[in-house]
Amino acid sequence: MELLTAIFFTPFVEMWEFPTFFAEVVINGLLTGVMYSLVALGFVLIFKASEIFNFAQGVMVLFAALCLVGLMEFGIPAWIAVILSLAIMVVLALVIERVMLRPLVNQDPFILFMATIGLTFFLEGFGETLWGSNVKRLDIGIPKDVFEYQGILLSQFDIIAAVIGAVLVFGLAIFFTKTPIGRALRAVADDHQAALSIGIPLKTIWVIVWSVSGGVALVAGIMWGAKSGVQFSLSLIALKALPVLILGGLTSISGAIVGGLIIGVGEKVAEIYWGPLIGGAIENWFAYILAMVFLLFRPQGLFGERIIERV
């Protein structure tokens, strides 16, 4: 009885009795969720355009951030270093298309997935060899001061990161739905061969999408790297994006953002109100549980495309 009370009654009483703290938990969850969405976006972009689950997305975040901070260490101003890093990610996209994707056109998506695993290990080693393994401080001038609003402590950095994330998502949504390139990307995603037959240049599309994904990785790398320093562990942030993808669907930009918000809030609320019952540290796996509960009702994810195959 005591256990049932602790699970089904006490947490809600706490939320009711301390609404300001509950609001702080929810707001921080939302802000964290946007950061997860940033990472998830990279996966979605590539999957939308090529049906490849890019296992290397996490390490692309690390690689982009390493390039940025490495260039800044040479005394290059932050804004120039950002442009140069973006250029490096475009070159990387070109190389990936030429060396990895082109020879595998029309292969099973699982083979392409395996290729991205290889890419992960290559980028990890290459990044460390180029820029070293030390933790690097990344400061591009985003303020990290905190302020209190109605008793809720908020971080300027988290808010700015959320705004940047929201602008990026909005921009990408327009890019995919309103521009000819965006429509071409969606056509390629639907059917490679059909897209080729109507004159859509597959190679160019792949380079574009991997470049955009590299750009998103750079933004995610800047935001996460500024929080924790740029180091190898940054690549593990991809683990945080997986439940977002399960929940939001692999093909939906809106899904990535809504999924990120739900996971962000869900894991924080669970950790704080239910975590202590079982020793804490539940947020990592709780995110997956939450995502799988959603899958029970919508197997394609919240915004994923429903696949119907008629026999």
């Binding site: 703290f21 702080e24 938990v25 921080n28 969850g29 964290t32 996460w224 929080k227 924790s228 562990s233 940054l234 593990l236 942030i237 945080k240 894991e267 924080k268 950790e271 704080i272 975590g275 804490g280 947020e283």
Partner: peptide, 10 residues
């Protein structure tokens, strides 16, 4: 790895 600790610090 401890990249995200917001809940702990709340």
């Amino acid at each position: 790895p401890g990249q995200e600790q917001k809940a702990t610090w709340l």
